Computed example of a mutant assay.
Amino acid sequence: MAGLDTEETQAAVRMTVKLSPQAASALKKISEERGVTITEALRWAISMQNYVHEARKRGATVVVRESNGDVKELVFDM
């Protein structure tokens, strides 16, 4: 559709970040397990964080349902 930005039409922004060894290791693990680049894993993580952040602003709760049926609410500092 005309006028809508898509990933293909948006200019990429290059950033440099410093990560703790634990965060870098977690990001590498995610990228390997998902079979994607570190950059794509970081994009995914940011997208997930943004979704959770916006949901929490609306008053939503975030829960995880374990494979055994246990349900746990995730609590995030805002």
Rank of each mutant, 00 (worst) to 15 (best):
Q49M: 08
G35V: 06
D5Q: 14
Q22G: 10
F76M: 05
M15S: 14
L74A: 07
N50D: 14
G3N: 08
L27F: 00
E8G: 08
E73F: 02
G35P: 01
E54K: 15
W44H: 10
R34K: 14
M78I: 14
V13R: 14
I38E: 03
T37W: 01
R43W: 01
S47C: 10
R14D: 08
Q10H: 09
T16N: 14
G59M: 02
L19W: 02
M15H: 05
M15N: 07
R56A: 07
T9N: 15
A26R: 15
Q10D: 08
K57P: 01
M15I: 15
P21D: 06
I30N: 12
M15G: 12
E66Q: 13
H53Y: 14
R58L: 12
T16R: 11
E73N: 09
D70I: 11
D77G: 14
L42D: 09
V17K: 06
V63S: 14
N68W: 00
V17F: 03
A12N: 08
A55W: 05
E8N: 14
D77E: 14
A2I: 04
A45E: 03
R56N: 06
L74P: 02
P21F: 06
E33R: 07
G35Q: 00
A26W: 03
L74E: 02
N68D: 15
T9K: 07
E40P: 04
R58Y: 07
E7L: 10
P21I: 01
R56W: 03
L42R: 08
D70N: 13
F76W: 10
T16V: 15
R65I: 07
Q22S: 10
Q22N: 05
A26K: 13
V52C: 07
T37F: 01
A24H: 07
E8T: 11
E8K: 11
V71H: 01
S31D: 01
D5M: 15
M48C: 14
L19D: 00
I38G: 03
G3W: 02
E54V: 10
V13S: 13
E40K: 12
A23L: 12
K72R: 13
A11W: 05
T16I: 10
N50T: 07
M1V: 07
G3I: 03
V71F: 02
N68R: 00
R58F: 06
S20V: 04
